[in-house]
Amino acid sequence: MEALLVSTGVVALAEIGDKTQLLAFILAARFKKPLPIIAGILAATVLNHGLAGALGAWITSVLSPGVLRWVLGASFLGMAIWTLIPDKIEEEETRVASKLGVFGATFVTFFLAEMGDKTQIATIAMAAHYANPLLVVIGTTLGMLIADVPAVFVGDRLAAKIPMKLVHGIAAAIFALLGLATLLGAGASLGF
């Protein structure tokens, strides 16, 4: 249950102000059809984070527990730093797949925007850290939806009222705590 709760909370916080949340604002303004946009976000996130969760589970099978602990600890600390750097959306990402309809355009652009994004990397790290990558993928997907669905419905009005630096600071602190706890041996009973 911890894997689900932590992954949901961390990704929901990390996603606020992230380029995929900005992409949700842009798609909502462009298409004005929230349900296919939300369905596209969900489908792209499940596929992207499912692959990331599988990679995280695979990493645990090839690295020794000692090496894995240091890699995960460093990864979480790196995520803490990365979370403090604001994302900017690239215009090209909003033009991809314009002939695929609202769902298709959302699916393709979200999937591509998440490739190598901090939430995908966090999913890999948390899937490697926790013994249940399925709960991590469910949690990171829920976190993504918690941050992006309101963006689809309320757009820029909400973004202007959210203290982005505070939210990013909280997410960074959680990643840093996970990194330090991992480096100090938390999870040793799980074999890391």
Score class of each variant (00 low, 15 high):
3 A>P: 11
4 L>N: 06
7 S>G: 04
11 V>E: 07
18 D>R: 00
21 Q>H: 08
23 L>F: 07
25 F>Y: 11
31 F>N: 01
33 K>A: 15
36 P>R: 00
37 I>M: 05
42 L>V: 08
43 A>E: 05
44 A>P: 03
49 H>R: 00
49 H>V: 00
54 A>Q: 08
62 V>A: 07
67 V>H: 10
69 R>W: 09
71 V>S: 11
73 G>S: 09
74 A>P: 02
77 L>A: 05
77 L>I: 06
81 I>N: 01
85 I>W: 15
88 K>E: 13
89 I>Y: 12
94 T>K: 01
101 G>N: 10
104 G>F: 13
104 G>R: 04
105 A>T: 12
110 F>G: 01
110 F>D: 02
110 F>T: 04
111 F>E: 07
112 L>D: 10
114 E>G: 14
121 I>G: 01
122 A>Q: 01
122 A>T: 04
126 M>T: 04
131 A>I: 03
138 I>L: 15
139 G>L: 03
144 M>E: 14
150 P>W: 13
153 F>D: 11
154 V>D: 13
154 V>Y: 15
155 G>Q: 06
156 D>N: 05
158 L>E: 06
159 A>P: 02
161 K>P: 02
163 P>L: 06
163 P>N: 01
163 P>Y: 07
166 L>I: 11
169 G>R: 03
171 A>C: 07
171 A>I: 00
173 A>P: 04
173 A>I: 00
177 L>I: 08
183 L>R: 02
184 L>S: 13
187 G>M: 07
188 A>Q: 08
